[in-house]
Amino acid sequence: MMEEKKNIMDYDTVSLDDENSAVVIIDQTKLPGTTEIIALKTAQEIWDAIYLLQVRGAPAIGVAAAYGIYVLAKGIDTDNYDAFYAEFKKQKEYLDSSRPTAVNLSWALNRMEQVVLNNADKSVAEIKQLLKEESVEIQDEDIRVCKAIGEYGLTLVKPGDGILTHCNAGKLATSKYGTATAPIYLGQERGYNFRVFADETRPLLQGARLTAFELQSSGVDVTLICDNMSATVMKNGWVDAIFVGCDRVAANGDTANKIGTSVVAAVAKQYNVPMYIAAPTSTIDMNTPTGDQIKIEQRKPEEVTEMWYKERMAPEGVKVFNPAFDVTDHELIAGIVTEFGIARPPYTESFKEIFAKKEVAQKNK
């Protein structure tokens, strides 16, 4: 169904339509030209939406996966626990195969699976209700987490600062506020008047199509630049801090984010601009020792050679290397901003403090 509204910020990135057993998303492949809201009801539709980047951004993928597995669980027609769990597990593993790099996908699905495992003594109907409650909590938690990241991130900058960001770690990548953009949005609410530079983010242009779009729609002073212009704006002294999101953080602080992030980090080091990673603790994977162990998704060559162009802009048959992400070395990162504080080097130690705070918060719930 098609909807036209003036402001993209009026829409939910992901929502649950329980009455119609659907996950409702903005089709982000159509932005900024068309705002199309689509309802996902089948496993194939949910898988495709994640793989094709109709829903994207680590937190939003997690929320969509949680709602998706709930919708699919709702449709499992059996009262037998073992039969229900077998089908649930099958659907869960299928959704989990849609994108390999973003840890929030498996994190959310594993969390939903734990609900099933922890309630084997209850009826299937009760388990379905508990799955719904857990999926809603995952989204509510995402909003709280992003707000907290924004508050901590705001302590790293001052009014009037220039901020550079890469890809889209904004509202469109989460439920609200975004991760890397959370300090920007909170600062906007408080009159900080940041000047933001948004990298266009080749080859899928998330910075141009999504970040510039949503920041402009919110009244933020945003300037769009090509990826290869970041060094110029830093050398000119226009950038005081860099905030980017991430899809996975290794135990040593290496981070996987949209391709091009490591280039920004290397240039930032050259010009003494601090690079901050906005990372919910759900994206920190303590089971991955370093960035070398992070599986990097490889995508179709057409994204580089044909997508967005009226005519093909590369010679037929040319070889294309198209990794979706790169890994930024922890030595290039000034701090990792989480909902429980800012982790500083050495990250192997500061992550322990962050997770200790998280454990206390969960016990005090």
Rank of each mutant, 00 (worst) to 15 (best):
M1C: 10
M2T: 11
D10Y: 01
T13A: 09
L16V: 12
S21V: 09
V23G: 03
I25K: 11
I26A: 01
D27A: 05
Q28I: 04
T35D: 09
T35V: 14
Q44K: 15
D48H: 11
D48E: 14
A49D: 02
A49F: 03
A49L: 05
L52E: 14
L52R: 13
L53A: 10
G57S: 09
G57V: 08
A58T: 08
A58Y: 05
A58P: 01
P59V: 12
P59A: 13
A64K: 11
A65P: 00
G68R: 05
V71S: 11
T78F: 11
D79G: 15
D79P: 04
Y85F: 14
A86D: 13
K92G: 00
E93Y: 12
Y94H: 08
S97Q: 14
S97F: 12
S97K: 12
S97H: 12
S98R: 11
P100H: 09
A102R: 04
W107M: 03
R111S: 15
R111M: 09
M112S: 08
V116F: 07
V116G: 06
A120M: 09
S123H: 06
A125C: 00
E126M: 07
I127P: 12
Q129P: 08
Q129C: 10
E134A: 11
C146A: 15
G150L: 06
E151A: 06
E151Q: 13
E151P: 00
G153L: 08
G153N: 06
L154R: 11
L156W: 10
V157Q: 02
G162Y: 00
L164G: 04
C167F: 09
C167M: 11
N168S: 13
A169L: 13
A169D: 10
L172W: 08
T174E: 06
T174C: 15
K176W: 03
T179S: 10
T179F: 06
A180R: 07
P183E: 13
L186P: 06
L186Y: 08
Q188N: 15
E189V: 00
G191P: 06
N193V: 03
F194Q: 14
T201I: 05
L204M: 13
L205K: 14
L210I: 09
T211M: 08
A212R: 12
F213G: 02
L215P: 10
V222H: 14
I225C: 03
I225F: 04
C226P: 00
G237V: 05
V239C: 07
A241C: 15
I242K: 04
I242R: 05
C246F: 01
C246Y: 01
R248W: 03
A250N: 10
D254A: 02
D254M: 00
K258F: 08
G260C: 02
T261W: 00
S262K: 04
V263K: 01
A265P: 10
M275E: 00
A278M: 00
T281V: 11
T283F: 04
I284L: 10
D285E: 09
P289I: 11
G291S: 09
K300M: 14
E303C: 06
F325D: 01
D326F: 03
T328C: 07
D329P: 06
H330P: 07
E331N: 15
L332R: 10
I333Q: 07
I333F: 08
A334F: 02
G335I: 01
G335P: 00
I336Q: 07
V337F: 06
T338Q: 04
A343R: 07
T348Q: 07
V360D: 05
Q362F: 04
